[in-house]
């Protein structure tokens, strides 16, 4: 595979240079005179003397074209499927595409967005999405931090506990949805039986549209707080031991020490964990679909992700679904954009 790529590159170079071999130092007289002396990176073994590729190398960096063989094909594949598809999705959202006849790209307008803004279902889904993302992220962060601090207190069998806490994350949403359907079962579920021993309930967790969203948040926290723990643990381990000591010498209590000295130093971990959790929450589609084995999630849990898929694949309102998808995408972008900028300004991009 790599051999094919590299020979293709050599051939490409030859073609661009008009038949010269890769290692030839001298080409047409004109080129030797113009850029022969400035060709970048003599050591690289690819010091051509002219041609478009070398001029690119000169401008961007000596390895640009040589490394392009490696990053360009994956970049193009990813770029087409991600950014190409999003652009296409946006165009489709401007059409009136529905049913089984293909989209008509000659008549573009924002009608679908107007329709979405006036659709009570979309507004409810947006609110639910927002509630789900914010509450799930906040609770999973707090819970994961507690887990990380406990596991970091020099306990025995630390690895075993960590493995158990992270275990649910290795499971599919489809699998965990089955577990939690059973946990929340009205007559025989663990949750109602435990609450029954202290005289509460039974509660119809899935059927009551007022509380089902919180039941879903709880299940998702169960599944992903182990992830937050792992991120925070890495953050805690990166804090120099002296900081813990220094706080103790000052006479601070353990709680105070964590709150004043340690937690502020976990800002980086918090930000990256929060971003990933928010994205998990936006992807909660799989979980909600599996709860009911269908496109219509339990009343009170419809989020934009489920609404979009239902509009597209259940009733074939393709353009409308695309418009909802763009709204969801913009929500995601408003989270990722600042994060990328933050990474860039820290010099980590």
């Amino acid at each position: 595979m790599r051999d094919i790529l590299s020979s293709t590159r050599t051939r490409l170079r030859r073609a661009l240079r008009g038949g010269d071999s890769d290692d030839d130092a001298v080409t047409d007289d004109g080129r030797v005179a113009t850029d022969g002396g400035t060709a970048a990176g003599g050591a690289a073994g690819a010091a051509g003397t002219g041609g478009l590729l070398d001029r690119l190398d000169e401008r961007i960096g000596e390895d640009f074209t040589e490394s392009a063989v490696f990053w360009l094909p994956p970049f193009l594949l990813m770029g087409l499927f991600v950014y190409g598809a999003i652009a296409w999705n946006f165009v489709i959202s401007l059409t009136d595409y529905q049913g089984f006849v293909g989209p008509d790209y000659s008549d573009l307008d924002f009608e679908m967005y107007v329709r979405a803004a006036n659709d009570a279902g979309v507004i409810e889904a947006t609110v639910n999405t927002f509630l789900l993302v914010v509450s799930f992220t906040a609770v999973a962060l707090a819970f994961g931090l507690v887990l990380a601090i406990l596991v970091d207190r020099d306990i025995r069998f630390e690895n075993t506990f960590r493995t158990i806490y992270l275990l649910p994350m290795s499971l599919s949403f489809v699998v965990t949805a089955q577990f939690w359907l059973w946990m929340y079962n009205f007559n025989n579920g663990v949750v109602n039986i435990l609450l029954g021993t202290v005289g509460i309930g039974p509660i119809n967790w899935i059927g009551n549209s007022q509380i089902v969203l919180w039941a879903v948040v709880f299940a998702l926290v169960w599944q992903f707080s182990g992830y937050t723990m792992v991120v925070y643990l890495a953050g805690l381990r990166a804090i120099p031991r002296e900081h813990f000591e220094a706080a103790r010498v000052d006479g601070a209590s353990t709680l105070k020490m964590y709150w004043r000295v340690i937690v502020p130093q976990l800002k980086g971990s918090t930000i990256s964990a929060a971003i990933v959790l928010m994205v998990f929450a936006l992807k909660a589609f799989d979980f909600l679909y599996s709860l009911v084995s269908g496109y219509r999630p339990p009343n009170g849990t419809d989020i934009l992700a489920t609404k979009m898929v239902r509009e597209a694949y259940s009733v074939n309102n393709w353009a409308y679904a695309s418009a909802i998808a763009i709204i969801l995408f913009l929500m995601a972008l408003s989270i990722i954009g600042p994060y990328l900028y933050y990474q860039y300004s820290k010099g980590e991009l």
């Binding site: 598809a85 999705n89 992700a305 597209a312 995601a332 990474q343 860039y344």
Partner: peptide, 26 residues
């Protein structure tokens, strides 16, 4: 020149797949 390409890779991790489903089917 690298930064924008890297940014596109990183951002692509976080894309909600709903935003590409209809074109993907097409």
């Amino acid at each position: 020149y690298k930064a924008p390409i890297l940014a596109m890779f990183v951002a692509a991790i976080f894309i909600p797949y709903q935003a590409v489903l209809v074109p993907l089917s097409q």
